[in-house]
Design a protein around this nucleic acid. Structure first.
Length: 649
RNA sequence: GCCGAAGUGGCUCAGUGGUAGAGCAAUUCACUCGUAAUGAAUAGGUCGUGAGUUCGACUCUCACCUUCGGCUCCA
């Protein structure tokens, strides 16, 4: 006999092993319709998990990550079944659940079109009406291999062959469709009431560009049509904030074919926001004990040979000159990173332990020759500006300096209103891919342990992703998502134990010994262009007042008020506000409409009444007409809002 | 770089083999205006670029450039 209970609920004794699903059915009189998966003693599990001993169960629904995961995963199998019935020759690769839905990678010669997605979708709806049962079964390796080989599922056979010894090889079947799969899955397809296929694109088999390109179909599904529609509306709403669209519309930046891909032109509005951010960052860094450097944008290949960029980063660099003729003439490269340049500043004289930590910051232009398909608006570009710094420290200072860099990063995120939107990622090396990195394995492990210790102490909630380290050391990456849900690194803090050795950087310690310092590479606000893109997306182009390129627009009612309007503009400018006058010979309604569409934070209407009373009639972009106020009150209000860096749109 | 989609006046878009259109914007004129578009007129395009097919190409084919989504990569 063993006892099974629901957390905070019923319990019951059982004498025979049974599935978690059957136990839930016995324990829950109201039914199990919403239950998609289950936690067994705290471990998220498939509903088919067999119970033999005492267990506490917690049902999981669409509200729970793991429950939703099972729901999406089953949805991807239904999609695969629909594809198989339409194109029986399809070979299936992998079809996982993701945070926002699911996808399946398939190998099919016919290139799928939008219409094909619609027909797959309608076939899925037919299949879903059957509410098919989903069965799980386990096979020994040879039989599993044989089953998939019979069906010519070459990718599944490859997956089976690579499963480690002793791994359970499970399959799930619904109707005619059988898939190699670790689960979890729903008990049947009944709960899936609404489905939408979103896009089709290419994806390499096993994520390697050396392999065949498959077709990846993304979809999303819900327990009700209403939820699907709400989700699609939210997606559309997010896309309406796409910086690449409204950033151009609002005149932040543009591009031209003559200059080239990934090389945006920052127009006055975009350039102004970047300048505000750069000054803000440089001032804050100075306050925190940094020394500003200005180093060259290019260097001879010699420098990059020492740093390791020549061997580990050359594909990403713009090279000037012919490497074939290097014996006769110098070869230069535009810098992809600032580190080796600032190291030359350190090397300019002998350093004492008393000089450390030494903090060099620089608003750095960098150049990276991204592959042509990589560029995206201001988020991935070939020339960008980064809030870079290198903290050169003694071993006993690494922790404090690292925490200081994280604190500065969080200060910046807070100032921009991003603190709630980011996730923290501990990017470590991949010991199975040694060629990507410089240095010895023991050093990597030692520094990663050191960094993990600091991270744990910092209280930063992080996830570890192996394989994402820089070639010279592990990183803490602070990640954001754009309006398409794509993740990018905003800020990074890295510990480097390699380059000081390569560049012969030393300090003379208290005991007279020469020792290599540690180097922390870090950004404080990340890449300015990317940060601008994320600001535009977060605020829908309505920049908070302290960042707005135009803070106030003065609108004279008619031509005879223009001189007064210009006087008001001059007064605002003298107080340090970015103001302009709309002196066009247009009706006030039109000026207001255009000011609103341009998302100008404050607008002053100036006519006979205002001039007579010495008051401003004020509109805000969020609340419209807020009535008249004295010039003094208006200035005080705006200067306070700027000083406090209020982040409302 | 790879897979798929797209490129028509400054912007948003219509135009499926007979040689290009609308709205907004621009310019000029009139109106001197009170909280989201005053009216009229004018001007502006070798239809991304280059080849090819055709009597004839914005329209069909190919290559390249650029843009969008995804993959790989990455701040």
């Amino acid at each position: 006999m063993f006892n099974v209970s629901i957390r905070n609920g019923e319990s019951r004794e059982f004498s025979e092993p049974l599935s978690a699903y059957d136990a839930l059915r016995a324990l829950l009189p109201d039914g199990t319709a919403d239950i998609l998966a289950v936690e067994v003693n705290g471990v998220p599990s498939d509903l088919r998990t067999e119970l033999r001993d005492d267990a506490v169960l917690q049902p999981l629904t669409f509200e729970d990550d793991y429950g939703r995961h099972a729901f999406f995963h089953t949805s991807s199998h239904v999609m695969a079944e629909a594809i198989m019935s339409l194109w029986p020759e399809t070979k299936f690769a992998i079809g996982p659940a993701i945070d926002q839905g699911f996808y399946y990678d398939i190998d099919l010669d016919h290139a799928l079109s939008e219409e094909d997605l619609a027909s797959i979708e309608s076939r899925m709806r037919k299949l879903l009406k059957k509410r098919a049962r989903i069965e799980r079964f386990v096979l020994p390796r040879e039989e599993a291999r044989q089953l998939m080989a019979e069906r010519a599922e070459i990718y599944k056979v490859e997956l089976i062959d690579e499963l480690p010894e002793g791994e359970t090889i499970s399959f799930y079947r619904q109707g005619e469709f059988v898939d190699l799969c670790a689960g979890p899955h729903l008990m049947n397809t009944g709960p899936i009431k609404a489905v939408k296929l979103l896009s089709v694109s290419g994806a390499y088999w096993r994520g390697s560009e050396k392999n065949k390109m498959l077709q990846r179909i993304y979809g999303v599904s819900f327990p009700s049509k209403d939820e699907l529609e709400a989700h699609l509306a939210a997606l559309e709403e997010a896309r309406a904030r796409d910086h690449n669209k409204i950033g151009r519309q609002l005149g932040y930046f543009t591009t031209t074919d003559y200059i080239g891909q990934g090389l945006p032109i920052m127009l006055p509005k975009g350039a102004k926001v970047l300048q505000i951010l750069e000054r803000f960052v440089e001032d804050e860094e100075e306050r925190r004990g940094y020394f500003l450097t200005k180093t060259p944008l290019l260097a001879k290949s010699d420098l990059y040979k020492i740093s390791g960029h020549w061997d580990h980063y050359r594909d990403g660099m713009f090279i000037i000159g012919d490497p074939e003729k290097e014996a006769e003439e110098d070869v230069f490269a535009l810098r992809p990173m600032t580190c080796p340049f600032q190291f030359q500043a350190y090397l300019q004289k002998t350093r004492s332990y008393r000089d450390l930590p030494l903090r060099y910051n620089e608003t750095s232009k960098l150049f990276r020759n991204e592959a042509s398909g990589e560029m995206h608006g201001l988020i991935r570009i070939r020339q960008f500006t980064i809030s870079e710094a290198h903290l050169i420290t003694r071993p006993d200072q690494v922790e404090e300096e690292f925490l200081g860099a994280v604190d500065l990063a969080n200060f910046m995120l807070d100032a921009l209103g991003f603190l709630e939107d980011v996730t923290y990622r501990f990017s470590t090396w991949d010991p199975n891919n040694r060629d990507k990195y410089i240095g010895e394995a023991e050093e990597w492990e030692r520094v990663q342990d050191l960094m993990k210790g600091i991270l744990d102490k910092s209280g930063v909630p992080y996830e570890t992703t192996p394989g994402d380290a820089a070639f010279y050391g592990p990183k803490l990456d602070i990640q954001t998502r754009n309006v398409f849900g794509k993740e990018d690194t905003l800020i990074t803090v890295q510990i480097d134990f390699q380059l000081a050795q390569r560049f012969g950087m030393y300090y003379t310690d208290r005991d007279g010994e020469r020792r290599h310092p540690y180097i922390i590479h870090r950004t404080s606000i990340g890449c300015y262009e990317r940060t601008l893109a994320l600001l535009i997306e977060k605020y829908g182009g309505a920049m908070p007042l302290w960042l707005a390129p135009v803070q106030v627009r003065v609108m004279p009612i008619s031509e005879r008020h223009v001189d007064q309007a210009k006087a008001v503009e001059a007064r605002l400018r003298a107080a340090g506000l970015r103001a302009e006058t709309d002196a066009r010979d247009e009706k006030i309604g039109k000026k207001i409409k255009e000011g609103q569409l341009e998302k100008i934070p404050y607008v002053i209407i100036l006519g006979d009444q205002e001039i007579a009373e010495d008051k401003y009639a004020v509109r805000t972009r969020s609340d419209g007409d807020i009535g008249k106020m004295s010039p003094e009150d208006f200035l005080a209000r705006l200067l306070d809002e700027v000083a406090r860096r209020v982040n409302r749109p």
